[in-house]
Amino acid sequence: MPLIRIDVLQGRTEAEINSLLDAVHRAVVKAFEVPQTDRYQVLTEHNLRRLVAEDTGLGIVRTEKLTLVSVTTRPRSDESKRKFYSELTAELAANCGTGANDVIVSITTNSDSDWSFGNGVAQYLTGEL
């Protein structure tokens, strides 16, 4: 159950946002092999001056299509993380016109006891999941 937070600059249409959310979800399903219905996403739009992402000295040029993706998830292998980066940039390029130069990803890992899907219960610990 990855929790996906996406930060973008203001100005995208509802159709563009929906396309972006769908593209990110397809990448999560492919790379992390989660069920199709395992979808938890939060998208936040920012004013141009409220979202700063420089290139860390790598010479990467950013545009108005800047997309920051933060993933909170159970432990994943390095291989599945690399697959996610690749799938994500491919999906965003094909479906949103977002270049790989505009995609920044951060993955934070937590444990089973860190999740409750509702009802005040840690379903991974109770065996419900």
Results as ranks from 00 to 15, higher is better:
73 T>M: 04
82 R>L: 14
27 A>M: 03
100 A>T: 13
69 V>H: 00
66 L>H: 09
44 T>W: 08
86 S>K: 09
65 K>F: 06
104 I>C: 01
124 Y>A: 11
86 S>N: 15
85 Y>H: 10
118 G>A: 06
36 Q>K: 03
30 K>M: 00
112 D>Q: 13
84 F>I: 02
45 E>P: 00
103 V>W: 10
123 Q>C: 02
52 V>N: 01
54 E>L: 11
86 S>E: 12
56 T>P: 00
62 R>M: 04
82 R>K: 11
85 Y>T: 05
42 V>P: 05
90 A>I: 12
62 R>T: 05
22 D>G: 07
93 A>C: 12
66 L>D: 11
70 S>P: 02
109 T>D: 10
121 V>N: 08
119 N>F: 13
33 E>R: 14
22 D>M: 03
40 Y>N: 03
21 L>P: 02
32 F>K: 00
41 Q>M: 10
128 E>L: 14
19 S>T: 00
123 Q>P: 04
73 T>F: 08
87 E>H: 07
46 H>D: 01
102 D>S: 09
108 T>V: 06
45 E>I: 10
115 W>Y: 09
128 E>W: 08
52 V>H: 02
122 A>H: 15
129 L>D: 12
93 A>P: 10
83 K>Q: 14
91 E>L: 04
76 R>F: 15
93 A>Q: 14
123 Q>D: 01
65 K>R: 08
101 N>E: 15
113 S>G: 03
23 A>G: 04
90 A>D: 12
65 K>Y: 05
82 R>D: 12
63 T>I: 08
36 Q>E: 08
59 G>N: 07
129 L>W: 13
58 L>M: 15
116 S>T: 15
54 E>N: 09
38 D>F: 02
90 A>S: 10
116 S>P: 06
55 D>Y: 05
72 T>A: 12
113 S>R: 11
32 F>N: 01
25 H>R: 02
105 V>R: 04
109 T>N: 00
28 V>G: 07
33 E>I: 15
46 H>M: 01
52 V>Q: 03
18 N>E: 12
35 P>W: 04
109 T>P: 02
88 L>T: 06
53 A>W: 05
106 S>V: 07
20 L>S: 06
18 N>W: 03
128 E>D: 14
59 G>S: 10
50 R>T: 04
54 E>Y: 08
119 N>K: 13
89 T>S: 06
63 T>C: 08
120 G>I: 07
51 L>M: 06
65 K>P: 00
75 P>S: 10
34 V>M: 04
57 G>A: 09
80 S>A: 15
41 Q>T: 11
85 Y>W: 09
125 L>D: 13
107 I>M: 00
30 K>A: 01
48 L>H: 12
100 A>Y: 15
111 S>Y: 05
52 V>F: 03
97 G>V: 05
112 D>G: 14
70 S>H: 15
78 D>Q: 15
47 N>Q: 12
118 G>E: 04
111 S>R: 11
105 V>L: 01
44 T>F: 11
63 T>E: 09
94 A>V: 02
48 L>M: 10
53 A>S: 09
67 T>V: 05
115 W>Q: 09
108 T>Q: 06
81 K>S: 02
62 R>E: 10
117 F>T: 03
49 R>Y: 11
44 T>A: 13
82 R>Y: 02
127 G>A: 11
67 T>L: 04
37 T>D: 14
